[in-house]
Amino acid sequence: MASDITQSMARPLWDLPTRLVHWALVVLVLVSWFTGGENMQLHRWSGYAIIGLLVFRLWWGVAGGSTARFAHFLRGPGETLAYLRTMGRRAPSQGAGHNPVGAWSVLAMIVMLLVQVGLGLFASDIDGLESGPLSYLIDFDASRQAAELHELTFRIVQALVALHIAAIAFYWFWKRQNLIGAMITGKRPFQGEALRPAKLWSYLVGLVLAVLVAWFISKGLKF
């Protein structure tokens, strides 16, 4: 009985930095989407902010809270395939953090966003009037190619977002798990070790790295 009560109680799972990065990326990807070609100044600012968030998330994946670390939730091919064979079962899995498929989707999203914003830094429009801060490092033809790939990779990002939303709906309706609530409150019922928060110095280092990298890139790698 005591065990059942413990498992049904919400426990700390996602730390505040992880949740803030998640929701800030949601907002900024939407801002970048709707400002591309319309308000390039805001489009650039949102891109720089996304770079800063991704830098922080990469750092947090190494030195952040226990459940935010890549080593905590990334699984090998065997375990991922085993999960795929059982994921349709209605009985909810109450493990801590991301399941194996969700973990790889998180990594895929981070990688594609890095590629997406990276290409934008080198891109130029057809008239050469609007250019990324690093476009001066390559010739115009290469810069135009970067712009085309920048648009193409955003379609991949959109597809990953759609899959993410579909997975949330699957867990909500089939497995009866509210993943959105957990990413808002940072808590949910689960089995296993609860979140071990990171040290204060990890927050500060991550914040400084994020700001410096975003600022340096926005200045075209120039002081």
Rank of each mutant, 00 (worst) to 15 (best):
A2Q: 10
D4N: 14
D4E: 15
T6L: 11
R11M: 09
W14F: 04
L16F: 14
P17G: 15
T18M: 12
R19L: 08
L20S: 10
A24C: 15
V27E: 05
L30Y: 09
L30R: 07
S32P: 00
F34D: 06
T35S: 14
G36V: 11
G37D: 14
N39E: 15
Q41L: 12
H43Q: 06
H43F: 08
R44A: 09
W45I: 14
S46I: 02
G47K: 02
G47R: 02
Y48H: 11
G52D: 05
V55E: 01
R57M: 12
L58D: 00
W60T: 05
W60S: 12
W60D: 07
A63C: 06
G65K: 02
S66T: 15
A68Y: 02
R69T: 10
H72P: 02
F73A: 10
R75V: 07
R75P: 00
P77E: 08
G78C: 03
L81Y: 01
T86Y: 01
G88R: 02
R89T: 10
A91C: 02
A91K: 15
S93T: 11
G97T: 07
A103Q: 06
A103V: 01
L114C: 09
V115A: 13
G118H: 01
L119G: 00
L119P: 00
D127G: 12
D127R: 10
G128S: 07
G128Q: 09
P133Q: 03
P133N: 05
L137Y: 03
L137C: 02
I138H: 07
D139M: 07
F140N: 12
R144W: 08
Q145V: 09
H150I: 03
L152C: 01
T153L: 07
F154M: 15
Q158A: 14
A159L: 14
L160W: 10
V161T: 08
V161F: 14
A162D: 06
H164I: 05
I165Q: 12
I165R: 00
A166L: 13
A167T: 08
F173W: 15
W174I: 15
K175W: 00
I180R: 03
I180E: 04
I184D: 08
G192E: 03
A194D: 06
R196W: 00
P197V: 10
A198T: 11
L200W: 03
L200M: 11
W201E: 05
L204C: 07
A210S: 13
A210F: 04
V213S: 04
W215K: 08
I217Y: 00
S218N: 09
K222L: 07
F223G: 12
